[in-house]
Design a protein around this nucleic acid. Structure first.
Lengths: 194, 194
DNA sequence: ACCTGAACACCGTTCAAGT
DNA sequence: ACCTGAACACCGTTCAAGT
């Protein structure tokens, strides 16, 4: 008779999914495991998320929000060059703290599993802000892509275990960031040579 | 009585897997689909590959070999700087020609699905060779990681559809490569400034 | 020596039936 | 209004039985 009260919530489901993700990778985020974690059966999840892909998208968006909150303050550094270096290090630290969630951000997922353009833009705004202060509005987008691509590539290779030739990996990252930021500073205002 | 002759082969199975991979992504490389493609049933595949992961690893290794053959000649360019730029463009072209196979190369796969260290090293040797000629043996590894990380990050973001802020993406790539190579050349021999 | 059907334990997803 | 068991169509994988 009395309509059944909700026994869980979207936020609780997302939180459970994130826990499972970090604990065992994307493959262990099954509808059944998530449901068990929040105390219901798998079919009940479909009341809040139309598909597993939609749940993964929600997890990705939540991760993106955390990342945005972490990076935002760094864009206010009065020294744009130092701010960009700090941001690159904070980005890497975030990835190491949440490796599986980080993978989700740049993974080639089905369209339904991707965060919205707005959410992505909000999280990456600090990079664009600092890039613009460093090289001016005209080159800002290309500069931001340069540094983002390097950081993403480097970190994802690290996480995937691709760097197997030894050496100090952390040092390589700092080296890369330093070279990039210096190169961008030197480009400022100067005519491109080619 | 007469022992049954083989109706397929490892190389045929790998080729079928690569076709399915490019046609529909990793998810469509199922044991059943691969088996159907070569004219047997799924259980027969286990005669040549102990698991699906092992088959994926074989596909990845085959891709890596193709990539190595494509890049190797470029390492002989008398102008190391030009060679490195050409190599970066060839690398991107390869990725666009085989997007799903390319993803496999830097994807965080189960250990059983990863190509061996030797195969990886052979395919990436040209980058290391050119980097060494550009910045000397001491900085070669860091320089190679810098350019590889940028290229991988940029291309994987492209393929994943992350660049949604407009602009000329190909131009951004060339810009990035040029800035990197120039920066590395300027670093040559010069004491690091920090 | 290789191939197969049948079976098993898992998925995501749907839906009628319960409260 | 929410939750559930049962069912369906798929997976990867195993294995006894066929040739």
């Amino acid at each position: 008779m009395s309509p059944a009260p909700a026994r869980t919530s979207s936020t609780e489901i997302i939180a459970a999914g994130r826990e499972l993700l970090e604990a065992g990778g994307l493959g262990s985020v099954t509808m059944q495991a998530v449901a068990a974690q929040v105390g219901v059966r798998a079919p009940s999840l479909y009341k809040r998320f139309p598909s597993r892909d939609a749940l993964i998208a929600a997890i990705t968006t939540a991760t993106l929000e955390d990342l945005g909150e972490l990076l935002a303050p760094l864009s206010h550094d009065p020294d744009a060059s130092a701010g960009l270096r700090e941001l690159a290090l904070a980005y890497r630290a975030f990835a190491w703290a949440n490796p599986h969630a980080f993978e989700l951000l740049y993974m080639n997922l089905p369209l339904d599993s991707r965060p919205s353009v707005e959410d992505t833009a909000r999280a990456t705004a600090p990079v664009l802000t600092l890039a613009e202060r460093l090289v001016g509005p005209e080159r800002a987008l290309e500069a931001a892509r340069l540094i983002t691509a390097f950081a993403n590539g480097f970190i994802s290779m690290e996480l995937a275990g691709t760097f197997r030739l030894g050496g100090d990996v952390e040092r390589s990252y700092r080296y890369g960031v330093d070279v990039l930021v210096e190169a961008l500073v030197n480009e400022r205002g100067a005519k491109r040579s080619r």
